[in-house]
């Protein structure tokens, strides 16, 4: 059973369509990337999943139940805009959120301390949030999201504002949650993290789904390119859409940038070169990056590599 199922979800704010007929599902253990530029509808969708705002139409199921059933004990959420009670101690804050998620005080405290130790904050457990650095407070907030060992972990732009060390720590926690069977959804516009972590991706533009699938499927949406060094007649090989010479190398050898015809694998072109007797000194397949896919599908606005 899918941990989260969204079907035909639409949210309008007056005349603005923030989310437009969106459908997707996230399975246990899956890391699901929610990609899109600013204003694509990522946060609005996550807020609807949490029943913070209500959809205009469509259905949402969290562990088989409507969001208003508030399965807080099964959900962990790290919002994009982060903040905690300045005068509460770190461990008390984690216990408070744990208890709001139906945990016993003892269990919340024990797991909270384990998380703080993992985040190298055990010695600051009794420090007030207001006395901590921003990075430390962000780790405490991550602990608040993880304390209940959620089955559905939702992270809204989790990497923003984190230094590289803490970004690594967060990646580890996402993988750890996935390994214990949790479905993890995170929204981001940083493609590196998505490429490294996501099993599947969903690309949003102006609230509408532009793509959903695995990373390979995403790359396959753009034609693969081949960098080749060959004789001039490579353009006639079957499956080559265009072969653009980029450099004259002497003795009839040219460096080419080859674009394949849609649906033609690089291996077919290589085989064609062999059967047609086209001499090759270099044949390197260059798969499109997620960034390129994103720019192609969504546009370059609001995206980081």
């Amino acid at each position: 059973m899918a941990v989260l199922r969204v079907e035909n979800l639409t949210k309008r704010f007056g005349d603005v369509v923030a989310v437009d007929d969106l459908s997707f599902a996230v399975q246990p253990g899956e890391i699901f990337g929610f990609l899109g530029g600013n204003g694509a509808g990522k946060t609005t969708t996550l807020r609807m999943v949490l029943d913070i705002i209500r959809p205009t139409s469509g259905t949402i199921e969290v562990l088989g139940a409507a969001p208003n059933k508030r399965k807080a004990d099964a959900i962990g959420f790290l919002p994009e805009e982060r903040g905690l009670y300045a005068h509460m101690k770190a461990i008390d804050t984690i216990v408070y959120f744990g208890r709001l998620k139906d945990m016993s005080p003892a269990d919340a405290r024990q797991h909270g301390m384990e998380l703080l130790a993992r985040f190298d904050l055990a010695d600051r457990a009794k420090a007030e949030i207001g006395d901590m650095s921003k990075g430390m407070a962000q780790k405490v907030q991550l602990a608040c999201a993880l304390v209940n060992r959620p089955e559905l972990l939702m992270l809204d732009e989790p990497f923003s504002g984190l230094d590289p060390v803490n970004q690594g720590l967060l990646e580890d926690e996402i993988l750890r949650a996935s390994q214990r069977g949790a479905a993890v959804i995170f929204s981001t516009h940083v493609m590196q993290h998505a490429e490294r972590l996501c099993d599947r991706l969903l690309l949003l533009k102006k609230g509408a789904k532009r793509f959903e699938g695995t990373l390979d499927e995403a790359r396959a949406t753009l034609p693969a390119r081949i960098a080749a060094v060959a004789k001039a007649d490579i353009a006639s090989v079957r499956g080559v859409a265009t072969a653009t010479p980029v450099e004259e190398l002497g003795d009839g050898w040219h460096a080419y940038e080859i674009e394949l015809a849609p649906g033609v694998p690089a291996s077919a072109v290589l085989e064609g070169c062999s059967t047609q007797g086209v001499a090759l000194r270099r044949f390197e397949e260059q798969r499109p990056s997620l960034h390129e896919v994103f720019v192609q599908l969504v546009g370059s606005e609001g995206v980081e590599q």
Partner: peptide, 11 residues
Amino acid sequence: NKLLEGLLACV
């Protein structure tokens, strides 16, 4: 302190 969203995820 922008902690409402985190809170509203629980209650």
